[in-house]
């Protein structure tokens, strides 16, 4: 086997892995996931003065984040693909860790930082939308 054939086979393997890790999505899914991510981070940083309201806002943010992940998982299941292995699984674990960091940060957030969280939320939501959009029409 020569180098061109080897590179071609490697590209093919990468494409196959990527397709099973995240199969093509319906057109509405990236936008909805982007909105859920933006909402999750914004809610997380809402920081109401009342402790219970603050916990409720953080729980709401976590629920929105989990809803986005659950939606992607469900769409994958409907296409007959279950479970994640390899680098995609590692990436998902890292995403959960980032979510946990946001939950901890949300506990110590202050009302003056709401706009910062909203800005991060809009940026992260747009990024999620863009990343998923590239896979939507694949």
């Amino acid at each position: 086997m020569d180098a061109d054939e080897a590179n071609e086979a490697l590209d093919q393997a990468r494409r196959s892995y990527a397709t099973a890790a995240q199969p093509p999505l319906p057109g509405w899914a990236p936008a909805l996931c982007g909105l859920l991510v933006a909402g999750a981070i914004t809610l997380d940083g809402l920081a109401p003065d009342d402790t219970w309201l603050r916990l409720a806002a953080i729980a709401g943010g976590a629920a929105l984040g989990l809803l986005a992940l659950g939606l992607l998982r469900n769409l994958r299941l409907r296409q007959g693909i279950r479970g994640l292995r390899g680098p995609a699984r590692k990436a998902q674990t890292e995403l959960f860790s980032v979510g946990l960091v946001f939950i901890v940060l949300g506990l110590g957030a202050f009302p003056g930082g709401r706009l910062i969280y909203a800005g991060i939320g809009v940026f992260a939501g747009a990024f999620a939308w863009w990343k998923l959009q590239t896979k939507a029409g694949r």
């Binding site: 093919q12 196959s16 892995y17 099973a20 890790a21 693909i81 292995r85 995609a88």
Partner: peptide
Amino acid sequence: TATKLRICAFLSACDEAEFRSVQEY
């Protein structure tokens, strides 16, 4: 063969996949 490589690389991303999904891909 490219087909066997595609099948296995596809399956390497998941715990299991339906026959139909692999066939379509």
